[in-house]
Amino acid sequence: MSQEAELNVSGPLGASTPRADGVVVPAPGLRGGLAGGRAAKQPKHRSLWGNAWRQFRRHRLAMVGLAVFIALILGTFIGSPLYGRAIDEPFEYDASLGFSRENLLGTDSLGQDMLARVLWGGRISIAVGLTAALVAIVLGTAVGAVAGFFGGVADTLLMRVTDMFISLPQLPLLLLISFLFRESIVNFFDERFNSPLMGYFTLIVVVISFLNWMPTARLVRASFLATKEKEFIEAARAIGANRSSLMLKHILPNVLSPIIVAATLGIGAAIITESTLSFLGLGFPSDVPTWGRMLNDAQQQLQLAPHEPLVPGFFIFITVLAINYIGDGLRDALDPRKTQ
């Protein structure tokens, strides 16, 4: 969550948003000349997104992060069924083996193949991260957009609620809610859809996103407040655009950049939160080996078979690191002041 905090606060602190790779960003004044020169040589039409992508590609570590994240998604979602080994067949192999050709990431204390479990559970960890970040962003954007666009009583009311949510003790509540509602929600999904896994998934996604939408709401509100006074919005009003088209077609696309960055960083934060819950034994159960859960189960093995807790922990770390670098690259790429 610290990355989100940084995102919000580094704006006002300085125009010189830190770059991770240390590339020197020329002053905005140079921009016109450079862009003009290049445009003369290259008459091909360039879209805004194309520009962002060109900019993003310059950020070496962000590109590495993107490659790693795509590899992780492919590896877990496609690789897991391709790899095909069972995740819950106890004593299929010798217990607590180190890395070997037969078991690339070794085996756990129950003699199950670690790679199979890491790939299988990774799908869930990543899916939770993506879904929870998406829900939180949609919720936060909706609240922020309504508050910023309509102002007045709606604004005051929504922002009070947002402030209250921000002051809530996040982790204790997260733990408490998952503990209290776990059984009934899982039972409900078990009876209704015959899938307890779906119950855990829904509970965890809902809990994480309901405690994480507030920074986005504030961000979007501020952007909406600034944008709705611009001339082009006045022009849109003048040609008779109604409220929903003003909000969705005219303002929202113009405030999308910070939302995209926040969403990206939110994925990493959600993955960490899910692992924390599972690590503390209040997330997914033992037969759903998400990375956090594997770490929790293998914690006692640190002395005898250190690879058992270190491997899943390493995957969490690499995934979140990759996402944070992507977020950093996007922040630079989508910031018009930095376009080269």
Binding site: Q3, A20, S275, P309, L310, G313, I316, F317, V320, L321
Partner: peptide, 26 residues
């Protein structure tokens, strides 16, 4: 130095406390 510090910061806030704790214990 700045680049090292930046990398350190990125590693630092990407590593969940439960994992850094376990690594330090190890």
């Amino acid at each position: 130095f700045d680049q090292f510090a930046t990398t350190f910061a990125f590693l630092g806030f990407s590593i969940p406390t439960f994992f850094s704790g376990i690594v330090l214990i190890y």
